[in-house]
């Protein structure tokens, strides 16, 4: 009995000791707290190809991860000063509200309900996802307009299924749905030829494609039939921190627009173009003042993390196993007909 009591007492003392070590930050001044603790607390997924994933050395990478790295480069001067917390979809918002993390960058769709309803603020969009279709290359289908009279494989009971129904109804196409419970089953059915096309979110399609027997025989159609804008999230009511995260993302998008990359940024130091001068934090620009950072914050982001185009190509671009085409999608820059547009860094 005594021993048992001792154990329980010991455990609870230990629990409170540990509790005092971790997780405590002043919620209303995240920027100062982050500077003081020396790392950015970033919430990521439990593994999503191209977005947030660890490699065999335990290093995190992906489009979502690079948002956190950019914030760390801006605030702390070193993109590697990030502590990642893998989160399940259910706990991600509570983890942010409870202060376990300060930036949630976990393929989270920006919707009214989430933005307005639960004490969170979306700071921007780092990837425009949406539902798409995959077909076999030899089928001759090159656009969604060729999908009349097809068999369509998809997951059951998700918005994917509803979107699919709406799409075919609005086009007046006839189709035959073939639905399964699990993604792996859908892939197997499509791969074995039971359907002509397979539909889910495009980033998912691209990742599933690599599981096919011959990934090169399949292609994702360019059109997108639903809107899933994914972006980083912060707590509501901390505008200083919100601004830092928002502009860390914006400056990467803006840098691409002006052709500033991690490789050429040093040679751009002598540029006469005032817009580029501001982006790279050349002499005389005062972009850091309002953010509570020094004026080299944007230089460090682009130098250490890269511009948006570099990040995209590195994690989901044509040379990765995911190979999501950027041209013609909403993720292309607005100058190329996409939706990617950042307010000016000025």
């Amino acid at each position: 009995m005594k021993k048992a009591l001792k154990l329980i007492c010991g455990f609870s003392i230990f629990a409170f000791l540990l509790a005092s070590c971790g997780g405590d930050s002043s919620k209303n001044n995240t920027l100062e707290a982050t500077k003081k603790q020396g790392f950015v607390k970033c919430g990521v997924s439990q593994g999503l190809p191209g977005f947030s994933n660890a490699d065999e050395a335990g290093k995190w990478s992906g489009i979502d991860v690079d948002v956190c790295r950019a914030v760390a480069a801006a605030v702390l001067g070193d993109a590697s000063k990030v502590k990642y917390t893998p989160l399940s979809a259910k706990e991600r918002f509570t983890a942010l509200q409870a202060g376990d993390i300060d930036v949630l960058s976990r393929n989270t769709t920006w919707t009214l309900e989430r933005d307005a309803g639960i004490g969170l603020t979306f700071v921007g969009v780092n990837f425009y996802d949406g539902q798409g279709f995959m077909v076999r290359k030899n089928s001759g289908i090159t656009s969604v307009n060729g999908l009349n009279n097809t068999k369509v494989c998809t997951n059951t009971g998700t918005t994917t299924e509803l979107n699919m129904r709406d799409f075919f109804k609005s086009k007046g196409f006839s189709y035959e749905p073939v639905v399964f419970e699990k993604a792996d089953e859908v892939v197997a059915a499509y791969d074995s030829g039971r359907c002509d096309t397979y539909t889910t979110d495009k980033s998912g399609l691209a990742a599933q494609r690599t599981k096919m027997k011959n990934p090169d025989e399949h292609v994702v159609l360019p059109e997108t039939i639903s809107k899933e804008p994914l972006g980083p999230v912060v707590r509501e009511g901390d505008s200083a921190w919100e601004d830092v995260v928002r502009w860390s993302l914006n400056v990467m998008i803006e840098a691409e627009e002006y052709g500033v990359t991690s490789k050429n940024i040093d040679s751009m130091m002598s540029t006469e173009n005032p817009a580029i001068q501001r982006i790279i934090g050349a002499e005389g620009s005062k972009t850091g003042e309002g953010l509570g950072l020094d004026n080299k914050w944007s230089y460090r982001i682009i130098k250490q993390v890269g511009n948006y185009g570099e990040i995209y190509e590195k994690h989901v671009g044509a040379n990765t196993p995911i190979a999501l085409p950027r041209k013609g999608s909403a993720n292309a820059s607005w100058r190329n007909g996409g939706a990617l547009y950042a307010p000016p860094v000025r």
Partner: peptide
């Protein structure tokens, strides 16, 4: 796994979603 802790099965899940090991 539902609360985001990556024990051995969670790590395997993480590994199998790595783009290079799908």
């Amino acid at each position: 796994f539902v609360v985001g802790l990556l024990e051995i099965l969670g790590m395997i899940n993480l590994a199998k979603t790595n783009p290079n090991w799908l």
